[in-house]
Nucleic acid binder design. Structure first.
Lengths: 150, 150
DNA sequence: TCCATTTTGTTCAACTGTTGAACTATTAGT
DNA sequence: ACTAATAGTTCAACAGTTGAACAAAATGGA
């Protein structure tokens, strides 16, 4: 690849990724209720999709320390959205899963957030959406590989 | 568009955007020095590109409160990377611009971050990169429109 | 011109998310 | 059996954020 081209891509990517991150977070936050933060919404979504998971898995998945996960899950347990159970087969492990209340709240929040994302997505041609998301998913995968290679 | 398709896209987009945000932030942070945070790096980059700007502009651009900008810029001024000057034509306005030291630090950080992003980008075909970034930029633009329409 | 309104930015308390070191409890590997 | 490694928590110290209250300056009608 031409060096000129690459540097331009890098610059454009860095600029736009920060913009989308900030603006996207602000919009999603507006779609949530006072009680639920942006990060809590995504964390609960992830746990729901996985059914149940551990602090270690969450920390690795999101690239944060385990103590950060403890702090976040504490708040979610306090709100009654998340359940902490000790794994009987390996008593070091804590199994995290949604409570019924948590399921209900996240479903409620989903309604607003989906409406928002749909409004955004609707402005793009279908093919562009599919292509974009596919590359985005590949990017998430590559980031994990690069992280693991350290 | 088929409802089924849209909901699948929304779900995939929400999941992957959080992953990329978190993992990307973690990797960029590793490329920075102890003294500079992820957010500070992007903020300084933005101000450098604009030459100079105001708190109001930054707050609108990144979708945060002006008080958040004050707090961030305070830390950057304390470190000697950012300069605060009153606008002589409108004395309410504070003009933010990089100091020479700030320019030097951000150039230094750029070297590491560019190396990282290049490593990631190199794993994609050129055409996919260009297509992806173009849609990403369109997305940033749409998010701003949606924000403004509120 | 005068005064109310708007705009720009700051301060403050309170909160979320994060790190990194020190710690406990449990398991795994010889 | 004992040392290693693993899973998670606690804690102090930060960065980033909100929202309300505030000060200072500019604007715009009457």
């Amino acid at each position: 690849m031409a060096g000129r081209n690459i540097d331009e891509w890098i610059d454009r990517y860095l600029s736009v990724s920060f913009l989308v991150m900030k603006r996207g977070a602000a919009l999603v936050k507006d779609s949530l209720c006072e009680e639920m933060t942006h990060d809590q919404y995504y964390l609960l979504r992830y746990i729901r999709r996985r059914g149940a998971c551990t602090s270690t898995e969450l920390a690795a998945m999101f690239g944060v320390n385990k103590s950060a996960v403890t702090a976040m899950t504490n708040r979610l347990v306090d709100k009654g959205w998340l359940r902490r159970d000790r794994d009987e087969r390996d008593r070091r492990v804590v199994v995290l899963s949604l409570t019924e209340q948590g399921e209900a709240w996240i479903a409620e929040m989903d309604r607003n957030v989906y409406r928002l994302v749909e409004e955004v997505i609707a402005r793009f041609p279908e093919e562009e959406i599919e292509t974009f998301i596919r590359t985005y998913e590949r990017l998430a995968h590559v980031l994990q590989e690069v992280e693991e290679a350290k």
